[in-house]
Design a protein around this nucleic acid. Sequence first.
DNA 1: CCTAACTACGACTTATTATATCGTATTTTG
DNA 2: CAAAATACGATATAATAAGTCGTAGTTAGG
Lengths: 165, 165
Amino acid sequence: MVKLNRTTEYGLMALSYIRGKEAGALTSAREIAQYFDLPFEILAKTLQRLKEQGLIASTYGTRGGYVLSKDLKTVNLLEFLMFMEGPVGLVTCMGNDGHKGDDLSHSCAYKSGCNIRPVLSTLNEKIYDFLSRISLDELTRIPLTKTAARQGALPISINLSGGEP
Amino acid sequence: MVKLNRTTEYGLMALSYIRGKEAGALTSAREIAQYFDLPFEILAKTLQRLKEQGLIASTYGTRGGYVLSKDLKTVNLLEFLMFMEGPVGLVTCMGNDGHKGDDLSHSCAYKSGCNIRPVLSTLNEKIYDFLSRISLDELTRIPLTKTAARQGALPISINLSGGEP
DNA sequence: CCTAACTACGACTTATTATATCGTATTTTG
DNA sequence: CAAAATACGATATAATAAGTCGTAGTTAGG
């Protein structure tokens, strides 16, 4: 539970990296893969997936690559996860519509009816709230170079506590 | 992400079921397995695992079975998950000690250093907080019989919103 | 106009983990 | 002593994640 899969991880790393470039500068898949020593093919696919989401835009050709194409403040972690990893839900019977309330009549794989669905459904909603409050902007606000990291210049003050509703 | 594995699920169902019995009454693995039509062997192991945790106690022999042996209010979801599913962390480099702060020197599988660990670490802490605030008592407070469920008698008012700190 | 350096995409293989099954031993009631 | 439980390890199967391979399309620059 609560573990990101690799492509999501690569995606966040890539977004952070791209974000660190000067505005308008292109970043190629190879550049990122080499920087972190990630499998090129997978990273390339991940970038294509980010593009599908509209997070980045691509330019073909020799000096091609990717740039950010969306304000990362406008995308939250729940959306990102659902896109990258599919349905988000505590149990399989709670896909992306798990937040639609405690539906006791919901079909359940278990005989005699599932005795935990209602409460899990409530919990699921809370998790959705939680994840929705975290923006990609916060998640990719990261030191971009080794040197920056070594200097301890970490401007991390993300607010995940679910403040202003 | 955020999906319970089957044994955790079975465990919660079993706890809810056992909880519904009159105080002191024993519940056998077979009874629960038949009630929900779960694979007996797995459920049996799950129950043994719940026993390891001290949540239930077992009685041997022909009329043996399980009873609750701990106040479910005293066990939170994070503890339960860590016991049932192992380390809880967004990324592998954040096991159960992921909450120990942003340790930049932490060994990382990625070349040039991982650029997302610090922020994920912060997020991880928030998730831990979140999960710690949910007790097993809340999670198993469930209608116990089909009839009760059909009557719509669902006393669900769990407070997961992270109130009084 | 051709080559190098890119993006794009689908098929396939391998690795890892989750789930389920099997076999056997031990304990207690009647 | 037989039946009905718990206990526990070994093994098999299924599902999913991760990684690889092959090929096609696009563009800048010599």
